[in-house]
């Protein structure tokens, strides 16, 4: 691999994988909770909440990145608080890139999870209830396993999409080699530089391969899980 890919490409690949992994791991539980709230819970302002969750789908990514910068920048209200209490710095860091990616891919994940939650037979939950399972128990033992196809599909989609997040990342955490220069940022940088054509081609090949593999894995996982659930 080192013969064909140089340190810059491997750095970008490693960073992209790290950013996408962190973003998926951190946002998945929240996405399951939000999908559950939007599907099952009855509360005032549900429509507003629904619209808010889906906002990143329709906003320019640069605008999302800017909002993050204002809120989570070192002097932003949340960014300042995080730094004061936990010493966590999000602006211009890999974790910041993961946060921007998570926000952008969140609606994708929620949509996939909601779809499968809608398909969970409420009658099975009622049956579990008559067998002595309380609310949390029912969720963990019945609802969650049955919505697993959607959870996995959502996670893989968000991961694949997260590998290539650009606008929100470059706006929030800039383009720092080794820290925030992910694949798409490296690709953009290579295209901008006069001698970067060969590097750009290699980065594009990596991106293409990763995306394709992601989609294949998502489909394969979904089949496996559906089979496991007996459908």
């Amino acid at each position: 691999m080192h013969d064909f890919f140089g340190a810059a490409e491997l750095d970008a690949l490693r960073l992209s994988l790290a950013v996408a992994t962190r973003s998926v791991l951190c946002s998945l539980p929240a996405a399951v909770l939000v999908a559950w709230l939007l599907t099952r819970a009855r509360f005032h302002g549900r429509m507003l909440f629904d619209a808010f969750v889906h906002l990143p789908l329709v906003l320019p990514p640069v605008a999302v990145g800017y909002v993050l910068l204002v809120l989570f920048g070192t002097r932003g209200p949340f960014g300042h608080w995080l730094y004061e209490h936990f010493g966590v710095e999000l602006a211009f860091s890999t974790n910041g890139a993961a946060l921007a990616t998570a926000v952008m891919t969140f609606p994708l994940m929620v949509r996939a999870i909601r779809l499968s939650l809608d398909n969970v037979d409420r009658g099975l939950e009622a049956a579990a209830r008559t067998l002595g399972a309380g609310a949390l128990d029912r969720f963990a033992s019945i609802t969650l396993p049955l919505m697993l196809p959607g959870v996995l599909a959502g996670a893989v989609m968000a991961f694949a999409a997260g590998l290539g997040e650009f606008g929100a990342v470059i706006t929030f955490v800039a383009n720092i080699p080794g820290r925030t220069r992910t694949l798409s940022l490296a690709l953009y940088t290579a295209i901008q530089s006069p001698a970067g054509d060969a590097l750009a081609v290699r980065l594009a090949i990596i991106s293409f391969t990763l995306g394709f593999a992601g989609l294949l894995i998502a489909e394969w996982l979904a089949r496996r899980v559906r089979h496991w659930l007996g459908r």
């Binding site: 009622a126 008559t130 459908r231």
Partner: peptide, 20 residues
């Protein structure tokens, strides 16, 4: 008394076995 604490067995028309 909540359903989960009634200890009343329920056999549904459509069985409702847990598929997983």
């Amino acid at each position: 008394l909540p359903a989960e604490r009634r200890r009343i067995g329920y056999v549904f028309q459509d069985a409702r076995l847990f598929p997983h």
